[in-house]
Design a protein around this nucleic acid. Structure first.
Lengths: 331, 331
DNA sequence: ATCGGCTCCTGAAACGTTTCAGATCGTGGT
DNA sequence: ACCACGATCTGAAACGTTTCAGGAGCCGAT
């Protein structure tokens, strides 16, 4: 492996000069610079990031840990974060906890060993324990898609209670009185909050709510929940799902059973992923600004890594209802 | 930042002993070991991966660079690769070139600076230039979703010509004679091969083929292509798309224009992503074993990094047609 | 001629590990 | 009493960078 020493020897300069050519080209004379550059080219020298980082004491990457990369929502979050990081010359390594606490812990440990510049985290549970290391070492971290008290860390989230209420009100307005909610694992704050928002919206309306908890937040879990839903009696006339993947699964179950959507069963999803609009029956969904979420979180994190220590803040975006065929009222 | 030295001092041992406790616990006496471990716990020592890697000369991570993480197909590829890597105690960092050569080059450069253990690459173009560094340094790389001559590198791919033919034959069998192909950027080998397979299948059948090149391989590009398709006259009766995202876009355009699928326009996609089955009209698609692709590629790479230098190989999987509503013949 | 102030370059220290040759100590065999 | 040996630990070197104090050479002003 060719190192800076080899380049220095071959170009007849000191290693300090080679380093300067690479990092502060202006301080070295033009003639020397071009000679060194051509040797670098000739030998195919590539600087060793680990040595660089060891010396610098901090790395040039940020860690991003999301709940589920199989959900296009988080892919968009990641895109937004990456965009913001690149704008500052930093790289992001994205990891997928798959909603498993032990994987989350293992990735966070990896981030710590890598001495990442900062961590973006959409946590499974509270994860207080796993974050101790970052707190002690002063590595900043920002919660994504989960609100946190500003005393602990900055966070960027979308108001899930409002989102749940948005879906609930919409179903009431479209005339439904027997409503089901297909929720994901209650360990996730998002799921709890959406359910709470829905309950609030339905309170006092006289509407009847059935809650089904799905195993996961994915399409198969949705199919499964859909099948259970078909077995309940009296059958609800509308179902609100904690995310679009679940909603797509429920929709498949309905289509498979010959239940007409929205006539016999209206469906509302959450996230408004790209595929919601392309579904068998285009899905009404609660839209979240995924990309913006990621970008803002990364920007907050970048601000915290700068020398000027800014205030921590909890940014909360507001979701928006997108009405499509799956809840359309037929006259 | 607490380092191995601090632990050593506090525990009253040498740094060598601390290192041994962490890396080869069996060589240190039980009493010492537990004393050191409790100091590690107390001080919150986390070893510095960059120093470790600098000393070791090689890292514990593999790089994976895919064409588009917005495509669930590649998310599955990444999952498969990650699974195989974890089984060997390695981490994977996944990056997204978004089909942009310059981003591809930049990520590959990053991999080189990180001294990754190996590289999994689904290349945009041939990228011969960018790979020179890896060739010189002996860093193994494996092509994913792209066949390569075994003389250059191992590769794991799916037979795209066969896949194109599969779709073509299916459309012929279901009675279509005016067929459109919505292709992605011709720079991608996958796109060229699928088109070629389709052409081969149609050859001599008397069927007429129209090829539209989409700007990207995503849903909006598909919508755009769909709109163009609606303007052609005589209008084809079937359209084959280079991937499912395009197909979903085309489908949206058809639904939006009131064109019935499959009666007035049959649609075949490619990849069989999860959302294909949940689409407005469930999509017939050419299925690829995405997860297996990633897993196999990672295994090949791992084998090449082991001391026993195995033969390079070009693994080629065979795609499979999944017939759904979008090409169903109505009687 | 001398000196201050440039510009350009050198050499060495430091970053936090791992590894390895050897030091030390106790034990059991002769 | 001596030796060989294993078990356990130490101390220093090495990995490839960046950084920084300072040295060398040169120019223009005094």
């Amino acid at each position: 492996m060719v190192g800076i020493k080899d380049v220095a020897k071959r170009a007849g300069v000191s290693i300090g000069t080679v380093s300067n050519v690479v990092n502060r080209p202006h301080v070295v004379a033009a003639a020397t610079r071009s000679r060194v550059l051509s040797v670098i080219e000739e030998l195919g020298y590539v600087r060793d990031e680990s040595a660089r980082q060891l010396r610098a004491g901090r790395s040039r990457v940020m860690g991003l840990l999301v709940l589920d990369l199989g959900n296009p929502f988080f892919v968009d979050v990641a895109r937004g974060a990456e965009q913001a990081a690149h704008a500052e010359g930093l790289n992001i390594i994205t990891c997928n906890s798959g909603q498993r606490s032990e994987l989350e812990a293992s990735y966070l440990a990896m981030f710590a060993e890598q001495r990442v510049r900062g961590v973006l985290l959409s946590p499974v549970a509270t994860s207080g324990e796993a974050l101790r290391t970052f707190r002690r070492t002063g590595t900043p971290y920002v919660f994504v898609d989960r609100k946190a008290p500003a005393s602990e860390a900055s966070s960027v989230s979308v108001d899930d209670v409002a989102g749940g209420a948005l879906g609930g009100r919409h179903l009431l307005e479209t005339g439904h009185r027997r409503i089901a909610f297909v929720n994901g694992p209650a360990i996730l704050a998002q799921c709890r909050d959406r359910e709470q928002g829905l309950r609030t919206a339905l309170a006092g309306s006289g509407a009847e709510l059935t809650v089904l908890e799905a195993i996961g937040l994915d399409v198969p879990s949705g199919r499964d929940a859909g099948a259970r839903l078909l077995g309940t009696s009296p059958r609800p006339t509308a179902v609100f799902c904690a995310n679009d993947l679940l909603a797509l699964g429920v929709l498949q179950a309905m289509v498979g059973a010959g239940v007409r959507v929205p006539d016999e069963m209206a469906i509302v999803g959450y996230d408004d992923i790209e595929f919601a609009a392309a579904a068998a029956v285009p899905l009404t969904s609660v839209r979240q600004p995924a990309r913006r979420l990621g970008r803002t979180a990364a920007e907050l994190l970048l601000a915290e890594t700068s020398d000027t220590k800014p205030e921590r803040q909890a940014v909360v975006f507001t979701p928006e209802l997108v009405v499509r065929e799956s809840t359309r009222v037929r006259r």
